[in-house]
Design a protein around this nucleic acid. Structure first.
Lengths: 155, 155
DNA sequence: TTGATAATGATAATCATTTTCAATTAAGGA
DNA sequence: TCCTTAATTGAAAATGATTATCATTATCAA
């Protein structure tokens, strides 16, 4: 739990209110954890991190709030094939900015990358346009992930 | 269970043997189901389809064999965010050929597309090269998916 | 046909995620 | 500040997909 909790709760307060939600300790704590990590955390990771400061916030509450945060677009849920979901602040709210993931099939380590974005933007623009027309599909989102074997797992 | 079961079992027999596996009724049936559908089936879907012809093949066996088939690269496992995995014959063994997926966030209908592959190949080639060098990562695989709302869910 | 061993089926166990429901709390107005 | 009300919570139980166990059966090379 780091310094800018206050800031987070301030900028989120409005966002929550206009969606009919309240600002609670649990929500503030979850956002705080997510804002101050570079890792990709599971619901349980987040629960454990929060638990040190607020031992009475339960895992259920963490799950419930993550779902809500995903729904209003503040958090993104990922599946890296590990058997449980991982969560990140969405690009817009994160210091990381736009990025994609490179996932080790062996140890599930995840590397964020934001290189080669020109190629990617080109590809995405063309493909999204083409697909939405051809298949009459309203495209909301995309997922690009690379899988492989990381340096340490290769040794 | 359609006509070409015999064919399937024939071309798979060798593949299995050289990996130390045996050809069994369950494996033949799973491949047969997958070869004769355009859908994306869950383990249970496959189990149910097989069950009509071989009522004594259990769900456990289907799971076990799917895992094995994924391991030797004949089958690919997908997660469309529905809470259970879906399986397809891999590109090389399927009549579908190389394709990606367009997933409806509402009803989880999946559209296969293979348009815009020039853009995609370009993007993939550059990105994979760049990433594997920069991050010293041996890239094995990639996942590209688009999510949105399909025609009928928009009405 | 037979022996070694891979594969199977039934059942129980796991494990992440959800549901239930009574108790608590945030937030806006009196 | 106090009240009201609906949103939120925690604990516990339920769910649902997937895996592990283990005794039995089936495959296939010799």
């Amino acid at each position: 739990m780091k310094k800018n909790s206050k800031q987070n709760s301030r900028w989120m307060h409005g966002k929550f209110k206009c969606n009919g939600y309240r600002m609670t300790k649990a929500r503030e704590a979850i956002l705080d954890i997510l804002a101050n990590t570079k890792d990709h955390l599971s619901a349980e990771d987040i629960y454990l991190a929060i638990h040190k400061f607020y031992p009475n916030i339960g895992l259920t509450t963490v799950y419930r709030n993550l779902e809500m945060l995903v729904n209003i677009g503040i958090v993104v849920k990922f599946d890296f094939g590990e058997g449980r979901s991982k969560y990140e602040l969405s690009d817009h709210y994160s210091e990381k900015g736009h990025h994609h993931h490179l996932v080790c099939k062996e140890c599930y380590k995840v590397i964020d990358y934001s290189d080669f974005m020109k190629d990617e933007l080109n590809f995405l623009k063309n493909t999204e346009n083409g697909l939405s027309q051809k298949y009459n599909f309203e495209i909301r989102d995309h997922l690009i992930q690379f899988f492989g074997i990381c340096e340490s797992c290769r040794k």
